[in-house]
Amino acid sequence: MILSTHLFAQVDWEKWEAADISYELKSIDKKNYEFDTGSLSGLLMSSMKNIYYFTISDLDGDNCPFHPSCSNFYVSAVKQTNIFKGTLMFADRFTRDSNLFKSRNHYKFYSHGKFHDPVEIYTLKENVINHIPQKSVVDD
């Protein structure tokens, strides 16, 4: 809730140092081929995700308008809840993905153009939704 107390926040309200200024261009986001070695189910899920990335997702173009993408959504949903609930959340996400009427008037979106659709808010847990971005363009 503390979002507007720093309304007049100035650059010099905190001491700063010389910055290392880069000339470089922003590189294209790459898929995260990480393995989750924390647990057996995590390893299994992340392996399946990586196989899916390698054989299909990296080859069939950019089809998911959301961030996180549907496959990432599924993996985090299972991680945050359980396999059963995560699957239900994924089915719901898939429905939203199939909705032809979704638009920028409805969803907040990132500067790279993807819709803002975080996993946490669908977990049905109490009091996890404690922030809604105020502007329609969400900062990364």
């Binding site: 979002l3 609930k85 699957t87 994924f90 089915a91 898939f94 429905t95 808010i121 939704i129």
Partner: peptide
């Protein structure tokens, strides 16, 4: 069945998000 069950779950989630929106907007 996958979509049917997902939709029941998603409807409850959507209601919760709607309520959170009302609450957070007022707080804001």
């Amino acid at each position: 069945a996958f979509f049917y069950a997902g939709n029941i779950y998603g409807s409850a989630a959507a209601a919760q998000i709607y309520n959170a929106g009302i609450k957070l907007n007022l707080e804001n």
